[in-house]
Amino acid sequence: MDLFSRSWTALLAAVAATPDEDFAVASGCAGWLVRDLVCHLVIDAQDVLITLATPAEGDPTAHAGTYWKLVDPPTGDDPLDALIPRLAAAYGEPGLLKFHLDDVGSAAGRAARLADPVTLVATQDMVLTVGDYLSAYVLEWVLHHLDLVAHRPSAAGPSAEVLAAARTALERVAGVVFPPALSDADALLVGTGRRAPTDAEVGALGGIAGQLPFVLG
């Protein structure tokens, strides 16, 4: 839960520090501008609030290591994928989008800090503890922080601590161990198909290279 707060707080700060003109720059998510990515983060923050306010009973059916699953790469047919760029454009001024994310995102962060980690919650037909749910989201925040700064080299990226945690999480979901030759950030970017591996990285990856990308859903 501590890593959730650190990764989410850093991501919110990075969005707040993004100049308005950079909202029209491409993000690390294929087909999305920075403004589209920030709009997606608003929806993510809403999902966190909804889940934390949805108590469940019975036994857990998932945990931090099984929350994410490998899925087929997106085809562009998902209505939500098409909605996000239109919704982001509707904000008009980047300042409005920043304000909405700060408002909803800060509330999600406070709710996470106040939540009892052993409480059971329900989301996406799964039951899991708050602690496991929030731990799973560290991977989401780190990947999207990398997306936010993908084409903005002067912007601050995720901390080494959360990068390492996200790498471990991706390895657990994918059932692989990335070679030490790849930094945590490179393992995440290459592993999820955010960039193509170099020839040297293909050699280091060995058989893993043929399994890429690992798309999470």
Rank of each mutant, 00 (worst) to 15 (best):
V142M: 02
G175E: 09
V142F: 09
T129P: 03
A174V: 14
A166I: 10
G157I: 01
L120V: 02
P158L: 07
T119K: 12
R113Y: 05
R172G: 05
A169M: 00
V142Y: 11
S135D: 15
V176G: 05
E161Y: 05
V149G: 05
H144A: 06
L163R: 08
V162G: 07
V138C: 10
E161K: 14
L170G: 01
T129W: 02
G175A: 11
D147V: 13
Q124N: 05
T168S: 14
T123S: 13
A115P: 10
L148F: 13
G109Y: 03
M126P: 06
E140G: 01
V127T: 15
V162D: 09
A115H: 06
G109D: 10
L170P: 00
A136R: 13
V127F: 00
L134Y: 07
A122P: 02
Y137Q: 15
A169I: 04
L143P: 00
M126F: 00
A150G: 11
D116N: 13
V121I: 15
T168D: 11
V118G: 05
Y137S: 02
S135V: 11
D125R: 15
G131E: 06
Y133I: 00
E140R: 12
V176R: 04
A164F: 13
L146A: 02
L170K: 03
V127M: 06
T119I: 07
L120P: 09
A155V: 01
S135R: 11
S159A: 15
S154D: 11
T129E: 04
H151Y: 15
A155W: 01
Q124G: 04
A122N: 04
V130A: 01
R152S: 06
V162M: 09
H151A: 07
P117T: 01
L146F: 01
R110M: 07
V176P: 00
F178L: 10
R152D: 02
P179V: 08
L146Y: 00
A169D: 12
R110K: 14
A155Q: 14
R110A: 08
R167A: 04
M126Y: 01
F178R: 13
L143M: 13
D116S: 08
V177F: 02
F178W: 11
T129Y: 07
P117E: 11
D116C: 02
P153M: 03
L143H: 05
Y133A: 00
A107S: 13
G131I: 01
M126D: 08
D147G: 03
W141D: 15
E171G: 12
V138D: 12
V177H: 09
A112T: 14
A165H: 12
L128V: 04
G157W: 12
V177W: 01
